[in-house]
Simulated scan of single mutants.
Amino acid sequence: MKITLTVNGDDYPLDVEPRRILADVLRENCRLTGTHLGCEHGVCGACTVLVDGKAVRSCLMLAVQCDGRSVRTVEGLAGPDGEPHPLQRAFSAEHALQCGFCTPGFLMVAAGALEADPTIGDDPERVHGLVESNICRCTGYEPIRRAIMRAAAESAALRRR
């Protein structure tokens, strides 16, 4: 099927098999390899991207379902000048990554949540629930929670200026 994916603001006219998952198309056709495939069953969250601003598991979504929709991957987090997103800075500052395999998924689920509700970072229980949605085998989750709360606080400070 002929589709056009809009990924990180760029259009990708593609001819894809109807059964191809979004994660494979992003990695192989769009050459955006930041989206990682872990379990391929929607459990681990490593493949999380934003589709029309909502976090989705790209291993469970068909690419054809995204025709004409906006897809945002971890490569689309940084600003146009390459300035890291507040979440990326916070993950680094809080040592919220070790092997890095799960990091793109955590960044994207957090970005979607913070963009939908910037106050989520004010509530440790809500951040805990957000972090529970993905699997990390290295960090123990606490640095990830701290990073999300730090990024939320930094973003709130920027909005107040």
Rank of each mutant, 00 (worst) to 15 (best):
A55H: 03
R69K: 12
L50H: 07
V7I: 14
F101D: 04
G9M: 09
D67E: 13
D52T: 11
D10R: 15
C102K: 03
D122S: 13
H41S: 14
L114F: 09
V25D: 00
N8V: 05
L32R: 02
S92K: 14
R160C: 06
D24I: 00
T48Y: 02
E132S: 15
D122H: 13
P86W: 00
K2V: 01
P13Q: 11
N8E: 07
C138V: 01
R72E: 15
C47V: 13
R19G: 12
G112I: 05
R19F: 11
F106E: 04
V127F: 05
D117Y: 08
R159F: 09
H36G: 04
D81W: 08
I144F: 15
E115H: 14
V109I: 15
G129A: 14
H95M: 13
L62H: 10
V109N: 06
R31A: 11
C102M: 00
V49M: 02
L50D: 00
R57V: 12
D15H: 10
C102Q: 04
C59L: 13
H41F: 04
D67Q: 05
E40G: 09
V74F: 03
I120F: 06
A156P: 01
M1W: 05
L107D: 09
L114C: 07
P18R: 15
D52W: 13
G140T: 11
V56Y: 00
R161F: 11
E132R: 11
P80T: 08
V43L: 12
L114N: 04
L114K: 03
D24A: 07
T139E: 08
Q65W: 08
M149C: 06
E40L: 14
V51W: 00
V64W: 04
I3S: 07
G112R: 05
I3A: 03
C138Y: 08
C59V: 09
G34P: 05
P84G: 11
I21Y: 11
A156T: 09
R126T: 03
A63N: 05
R89S: 10
L5K: 00
G112H: 07
T4V: 14
R20F: 01
A55Y: 01
G42K: 07
T48R: 00
P84Q: 06
R159C: 13
T103P: 01
G42D: 08
R159L: 11
R150V: 02
G105I: 03
Y12F: 14
G38S: 14
V127T: 08
G42S: 10
V131H: 04
C138R: 09
C136P: 07
P13R: 06
L37C: 04
A63M: 06
L22E: 02
P13V: 14
G42I: 11
I144R: 01
L60A: 12
A113K: 13
C138T: 12
C66L: 10
T103Q: 12
S133W: 04
R145V: 09
V7K: 01
G82R: 05
V56D: 01
C44N: 05
L14N: 06
S155G: 11
P86L: 02
P118R: 15
C44H: 10
E83P: 07
D122L: 13
Q88Y: 04
R20V: 09
P124R: 15
V109C: 11
P143D: 07
P80Q: 09
P18D: 12
